[in-house]
């Protein structure tokens, strides 16, 4: 006898067995516990029941299959219907998240929880600060085991927008991650978002690759210095090069403002000394911008022939574009 079949709390429910169709492909030989629990869930969903026993049932199914989006969404709607304490749910979700690092559904569930909770605390700065602190603390814990976890980062970007965390402490926590690994591109990417999407000054709807006149000059200077310092640490690290280009683009500043800096890592005129292919790429774009197409062409040719031959086709395409212009 199954767990639910013999439980008086469930004797009013007739489980609905799974219809797999005849000769089903990739049919899964479910463990009895899972098949039974899912039979009860189908019955509950069909009856649109939202009760506390649904919470127990969904905990059990999620423990066997954390990727079951239907169960997560049904659980969320039950939590809201029952007015189940959100804080308690977040604590449970923390445990599940730590045990299932790759899981996608958990992070959407968490987002639904915060969306639901937010209106009730939005006018209470203390409660908001407390929520922000506990959320960031948990994300930091997640990053301890995988600091590039895509779902966790996406959730963090959601959280920043939701709780308006475009602030110094967010920048600081990014710096801590970059201190451990300056090649962590997820952290660079998050920094760019924090700095250039801050609604205090950023133009709403400004594309990430577009000039935004709203960005303060001092901020641009600061970000340029930050990326340059990182490039000095490891010149072949592409993350800060991409960041530097992104900052210059946002600020509407020509690449030529960084010619001296980039030349530290790539010289191709009288003497040839290249320490970073990204520097050479940067200089090629810079010289093209300045109309020095011959120098740009030489840089691109060197990249294709010598310093970065895997991308020869790409560098050649760039050379053709120089000539066409």
């Amino acid at each position: 006898m199954g767990k639910y079949e013999g439980d008086p709390a469930w004797d009013d429910v007739v489980p609905i067995p799974q219809d797999d169709g005849e000769g089903a492909l990739a049919q899964i030989a479910y463990a009895d516990e899972y098949a039974e629990a899912m039979g009860y869930l189908r019955a509950i969903v069909a009856a649109k029941e939202h009760s506390s026993r649904v919470l127990d049932l969904t905990v059990e199914i999620i423990s066997m299959n954390p990727a079951h989006y239907t169960v997560w969404l049904y659980r969320a709607s039950t939590i809201f219907a029952l007015d189940h304490p959100i804080q308690q749910e977040i604590e449970w979700v923390n445990e599940v998240a730590l045990d299932n690092e790759k899981n996608y559904q958990i992070w959407h569930h968490r987002q639904l929880l915060i969306d639901h909770l937010y209106p009730s605390i939005s006018s209470d700065p203390v409660a908001l600060q407390k929520l922000a602190n506990s959320e960031i603390a948990f994300l930091t814990l997640m990053f301890n085991s995988d600091s590039k976890n895509y779902h966790v980062w996406s959730y963090r970007q959601y959280l920043v927008r939701k709780l308006n965390l475009f602030n110094a402490s967010e920048i600081k926590s990014i710096e801590a991650l970059l201190k451990v690994d300056v090649r962590n591109n997820s952290a660079w990417s998050h920094r760019f978002f924090i700095v250039f999407s801050n609604p205090e000054y950023a133009t709403p709807g400004s594309a990430a690759t577009a000039y935004d006149p709203g960005i303060p000059d001092a901020l641009l200077d600061c970000e340029i210095e930050f990326s340059k310092a990182a490039i000095f640490e490891a010149p072949q690290n592409q993350s800060p090069w991409n960041y530097l280009r992104g900052v210059l683009r946002k600020g509407g500043r020509p690449l030529a403002t960084q010619e001296c800096f980039a030349s530290e890592f790539a010289k191709i005129e009288s003497e040839e000394e290249v320490k970073s292919s990204h520097a050479l790429d940067f200089l090629a774009d810079l010289w093209n911008e300045e109309g020095e197409t011959e120098k740009a062409d030489k840089a691109l040719k060197l990249l294709g022939d010598k310093y970065d031959p895997i991308r020869k086709n790409y560098w050649e395409w760039r050379r053709k574009a120089l000539k066409a212009a």
């Binding site: 990739a26 899964i28 030989a29 479910y30 899972y34 066997m64 299959n65 990727a67 079951h68």
Partner: peptide, 12 residues
């Protein structure tokens, strides 16, 4: 073909 029980994580 028929998949063993641990494939339950792929059920959805």
């Amino acid at each position: 073909k028929k998949l063993p029980a641990p494939y339950v994580v792929a059920d959805a």
